[in-house]
Computed example of a mutant assay.
Amino acid sequence: MQVELSVQDCCPQNSSIQPETWEIWFRQWLDLLKPELDGAPLHPQENYELSLRLTDDREIQSLNQNYRHKDQPTDVLAFASLEVDCPQIDELETEPLYLGDIVISVETAERQAAPHNLETELAWLAAHGLLHLLGWDHPDDASLLRMLDQQQILLNAVGLDAKR
């Protein structure tokens, strides 16, 4: 499986996760999740592309206001490309499937990292964002619990423990 990942880190002094580590994690997560669409593999050649931006509360608050009409910082936002443009079959055969963008506020992650550490919190939020890119949602408590359980599975797969 190939994962092309663009990592933009506006706060490198706060986050110590290297781009190579992110690539390994996302590759393992996508391999574990085996994304499907209507029972068929989402991408026949299993080549995926996504963007990860690590930012601060000011920038994520602006994005949250513009896209969700909530004028407050949040921990993670996911902008799924599959919600907007469904790729054509012939495009899937030759190009990596662009899943979308994940934006994480490192400042908010630092505040939330108390039960574990910043690296684990950032991975937790990235896994949450990836699930959203793949169509997971949590409109009610039952679906939120399923999503949180899946996040735990993803973190365990890369050797992290984030019991919530």
Rank of each mutant, 00 (worst) to 15 (best):
Q18I: 09
Q18V: 09
Q18F: 11
P19V: 04
E20K: 02
E20H: 01
E20C: 01
E20P: 01
E20W: 02
T21Q: 04
T21H: 02
W22E: 00
W22L: 00
W22D: 00
E23S: 06
E23F: 00
E23M: 05
I24K: 04
Q28K: 08
W29T: 01
W29K: 00
W29P: 02
D31V: 11
L32G: 01
L32M: 05
L33Q: 08
L33R: 08
L33K: 07
K34C: 13
K34P: 12
K34M: 14
E36P: 12
E36D: 12
L37R: 14
L37K: 15
L37H: 15
L37D: 14
D38R: 06
D38Q: 10
G39A: 06
G39N: 09
G39Q: 05
A40S: 14
P41K: 01
L42E: 00
L42M: 02
L42A: 03
H43M: 07
H43K: 11
P44T: 09
P44L: 05
P44K: 07
P44F: 07
Q45I: 00
Q45S: 03
E46D: 07
E46G: 06
Y48P: 07
Y48R: 09
Y48A: 08
Y48E: 09
E49A: 11
E49I: 02
E49Y: 06
L50R: 07
L50M: 12
S51W: 07
S51H: 08
S51F: 05
L52P: 03
L52Q: 04
L52H: 04
L52E: 03
R53D: 08
R53N: 06
R53W: 09
R53E: 13
L54I: 13
L54D: 14
L54K: 13
T55F: 05
D56H: 15
D56W: 13
D57Q: 09
D57G: 05
R58K: 11
R58L: 06
E59V: 07
I60A: 10
I60T: 08
I60H: 10
Q61H: 14
Q61P: 15
S62W: 11
S62H: 12
S62P: 08
L63S: 13
L63Y: 14
L63A: 14
L63C: 13
L63R: 13
L63P: 15
